[in-house]
Write a protein that binds this DNA or RNA. Sequence first.
RNA 1: GGAGGGAUGGCUGAGCGGUUAAAAGCACCGGUCUUGAAAACCGGCAUAGGUUAAUCCCUAUCUAGGGUUCGAAUCCCUAUCCCUCCGCCA
Length: 424
Amino acid sequence: MLDVKFIRDNLDQVKAALAKKGFMFDEAEFTRLDEARKAALTSAQSLQAEKKKASKQIGALIGQGMSPEDAKAQVMGSIDSDIGEAELAAKQAEQSLRELLMSIPNVPQNDVPFGSDENDNVEVLTWGEPVAFSFEAKDHVDLGEPLGLSFDDGALVAGSRFVAMSGAMARLHRAITQFMLDTHSEEHGYEETYVPYLVNRQALEGTGQLPKFEEDLFKVPGEKDFYLIPTAEVPVTNLLRDSVTDKTLPIKKVAHTPCFRSEAGSYGRDTRGMIRQHQFDKVELVQFVRPQDSDAALEELTGHAEAILQKLNLPYRKVILCGGDLGFSAAKTYDLEVWLPGQQKYREISSCSTFGDYQARRMQARWRNPETGKPELLHTLNGSGLAVGRTMVAILENYQQEDGSIVVPEALRPYMRGLEVIRP
RNA sequence: GGAGGGAUGGCUGAGCGGUUAAAAGCACCGGUCUUGAAAACCGGCAUAGGUUAAUCCCUAUCUAGGGUUCGAAUCCCUAUCCCUCCGCCA
């Protein structure tokens, strides 16, 4: 959520910044709601002041020994019935403004390039060389199926866009996860964290998935409605919701969770293989930092995700997302795209973002600034470090041999009982 | 599933119809003292909104939403969360 005061004082600037994101900011509507709120609030407050004064007078008179009836009769007059109505109106005006604010995306940072979609993203760097195979490279579906990767089994027990794994494939999947968790917690200073996979509505509002993107989520209706998490960002970031943390910033957390996405609106895209699934695992990095540190933290966090790709010796490129491709809550995002020989393309494997104070304001996540002694909003960041399923895809495709076997990357061998090659 | 108890500021915790936005302690900030620090002592210290050049001031907030009342942290109802006991259970 953006700061109302900031919007009010910088209307043109906000409008321009949001336009960069492809969002049409309705200035007239904002101003209308903002002024309606102020008017309703002012009139309710003056009535409240009158009421409060009258009650105090009655209290004083009773204190002097007057009977309650006489005291009431003497003060009388100021008792009005409008007050409930005025309070309700003020509350509704406040609510309307809040609803509008909750649906306005974060503004991009100045160094975010202009552009409308992923084609306008700007490459920052490439790392590693795509392998030149002496044979025709297969994709992960053809490579994985003989080794225990089964989309048929996934479809059998759940449906399309699900996968099941057995044997070496299941083991590899776990090895990747463990390797990432260990690296981030032991080498990059993240605290290992376990969180619920079902969350409430408030958590999703805090990070920005709701109210606007309900159709992307799996809802679990019941006596109390839950949602399956679309990313660990939701439960981990919300750990600091409604609090003033007494911990020293930065707080860095890493969590491994499954992620569930309905992928509504992506029919026909990436239908083959495990690039786009309803359920996938991800190791997520989350940082809570002082406002002055968030720019540096984004570079650091992205570097931590890159370190995984480098340790696995997977060629990738780093791009900065243009305004039009930037997520709702993000102020700036780097995507890491891994090289997939089966597709002859770089595909997204990590997305690292800073949110400034946007999520913190929605969550009311604060820290105590030692300089002011006051609770102030902190800054949040997160990034995939990395998406486990896509990492597995990248390994299968980049480490394939002509006979269909897969060389196990050295970094993963300790997690595979020393296994060097996976064969059918 | 059954029976109880609870939720107060960054934290602990008093208050249980009218100078209570809320005692006290801790933490934090400033000062005195000290070579420096600690201790001791003195003072300050909730959040949000309205108003303002800024202060003053005004309003709201004692988990949330309703209700009773001239007046609610305090009484009643509902919800949420936490705790204790019983039952069930990976």
